[in-house]
Design a protein around this nucleic acid. Structure first.
Lengths: 248, 248
DNA sequence: CGGACTTAACGTATAAAATACGATAAGTTT
DNA sequence: AAACTTATCGTATTTTATACGTTAAGTCCG
C-alpha cells in the first residue's frame, strides 16, 4: 500500500433557506465539456481548496460567490473520502473543469443557513442557481445527494441543540413562523400554545413594536432573536440530552 | 491563486481511556531523524491516508496498530487545514518519516474511546506508547495539542448527548463508576442519590448478579449497559437541548 | 468483638418543567 | 353580521429535577 499523492481537496456546501413553507437548498447547474453526457446536471456549490487557504476560507469563498453574502452561518460537517466517490467520467469532468490532473478528490461537506430574502434570491437566480425544495430532490451530481442527506440530518440535530433556526428566519419574525420552521424541518406537529410558552419563557425573544399586517386573522407580534440572552443562558447552565439537564 | 496540489491527507486520533480516577489519552513518542532536534517528542497516533482507503479506514488502521483493538468507538471531529499547520522542520520530519514529498498536510482529527483493561495497557506500553493524564499535557508535536483540546470539548459534548460513557467503562460497572466518569470528564459534582435515580429510571442499565468484592463499604451491584433499550428510547422520543424535550 | 467509617440503596418532599387543552381577542372573508 | 382563522392568555395535570434524610452492608482499626 502506498501513501496517496496527486489528490485534491474540495469543499461542497449545502446552502439551506426557508421560504416560510418549506426548506430549500441551493443548486447549481454545471456546464459540460461535451454535450452528450449523461451525468446529473445539478450539484451543490463547491470549489477546490487553494494554496494558502484553509477549508473554512474556501467554504466562505464558495458561499459568497454563490449567494453574494458574507456573514453566513457555516459549519463543517463530515469529510467524504471514498476513493471512488468521483471517478471515471466525473473525475474527468472535474480535472477538465479545473484544469488539473488529480487522481482522487476528497471533499469536505459544509452546510450553510441563509435568510432567503428578495435580494439573495435575485442574486442567486441571476447567477443561474436555483432554490429547490429539499424533499423533491432525487439525484444530484457525483455524491452530492449523499452530502445533502448528511446535511439534512445534521441540520435536524442542530435545530434541537442550538438556536440555528434564527439563521433561516428574517430578523423580525412571528412566533408562528419560528414554529412552522421547526415543524417543517423536523417533520413534527407542535402545539402553538405550548410552543409560545416555552419559547417566551426562554427569554431569547425580544418583542418589537411591529405587528403583522393584512393577515386574515389576529395579527401577530414580530420578535427578534436576543443572542446575548442566549449566550448568557448557555454559560449559566450545561445543557444535556442523554442525562437530561442537570446542574448540580 | 492556484489550486493546491502536492498535498497529503492524514488522520490523527485522540484515544481516550478511563482508569476509574482520571481521563487518559494515548501518546506516542516519535523518532527523530536527527538527534539534536527541539521538536516536541510526544504526538497523537496518526497516519497518512493510503490509496484505496477511506479516512475512517485509515483511522481504524491507526487505532488497531496503536491499541491492538478492532471494535473501538471512533468518531470524526474536525479537519485541521491551516496551510501552515505543519511547516519547516515539522514538515521536513513528516516527509522524511514517510518518504514522501508533500508541500502541505491536512489532517482529519478523530477521537476514540477504549476500555482501559490490562490487556490493552500491556499492548500499548509494549509498543512504547503511554497513557497520559489529559490534564497534565502541556505541549505536543505539531498542532496535536490543539487537536487534543478539540477532542476533549467534543467528548464533553458527546457525554451529555449520547451514551458514549459506556465505551470507557468495562462491560460490568457500578453506578458509582459511571458517576465518577461523568464527574471527572465534565468536572462537576454529582449527587449520587439523584444520579442513581436518574440513570436507573432511564432503563438503560441491566443489573447483573455480581457485586463488588473487598471494598471497605457496602458492596455495589454491577450493571451492564442495555444498548437496545437505549436505541428504543431514542426512536420513541426526540431529544432536545435548546427547546428542551418535546414530544408532541 | 465493637464502634467508627464509608458508600450503597431506598425514600420523601419540594420545585420546576412539560403537556393537554379551554377561553377570549383581533383581525379577514363572505 | 356571522364564519373563520390564528394570536394570546390561562389553568390543571403530569412528569422530571433537585435537595436531602435514613438504613444497609461491608471494611478498618482499636
Amino acid at each position: 500500500m502506498t501513501i496517496q499523492m496527486n489528490q485534491s481537496l474540495s469543499v461542497d456546501c449545502a446552502v439551506f433557506g426557508f421560504n416560510g413553507k418549506s426548506l430549500k437548498v441551493l443548486l447549481i447547474e454545471r456546464r459540460y465539456y461535451k454535450p452528450d453526457t449523461h451525468l446529473d446536471p445539478l450539484k451543490l456549490p463547491g470549489a477546490m481548496i487553494l494554496e494558502n487557504e484553509t477549508l473554512p476560507e474556501a467554504a466562505y469563498r464558495v458561499l459568497e460567490e454563490a449567494t453574494g453574502l458574507k456573514n453566513v452561518y457555516l459549519k463543517q460537517m463530515e469529510i467524504f473520502s471514498d476513493p471512488k466517490r468521483v471517478s471515471g467520467e466525473e473525475l474527468e469532468w472535474i480535472n477538465r473543469y479545473h484544469g488539473i490532473r488529480s487522481e482522487r478528490v476528497v471533499t469536505v461537506g459544509y452546510y450553510a443557513l441563509v435568510k432567503l430574502d428578495a435580494r439573495t434570491v435575485a442574486y442567486t437566480t441571476a447567477k443561474g442557481a436555483q432554490w429547490v425544495d429539499v424533499d423533491s430532490i432525487q439525484r444530484l451530481a457525483m455524491d452530492h445527494k449523499q452530502i445533502l442527506t448528511t446535511a439534512l440530518s445534521v441540520l435536524c440535530r442542530e435545530m434541537l441543540q442550538s438556536p440555528v433556526a434564527f439563521e433561516l428566519l428574517p430578523r423580525k419574525f412571528t412566533i408562528r413562523a419560528l414554529q412552522n420552521l421547526y415543524s417543517a424541518v423536523l417533520g413534527i406537529e407542535i402545539d402553538n400554545r405550548n410552543f409560545r410558552k416555552k419559547i417566551l419563557a426562554s427569554g431569547f425573544l425580544t418583542p418589537t413594536s411591529e405587528k403583522e399586517q393584512g393577515v386574515a386573522h389576529k395579527p401577530a407580534q414580530y420578535y427578534t432573536f436576543n443572542r446575548n440572552a442566549y449566550k448568557k443562558a448557555v454559560k449559566e447552565k450545561l445543557k444535556l440530552g442523554f442525562i437530561n439537564n442537570w446542574k448540580y
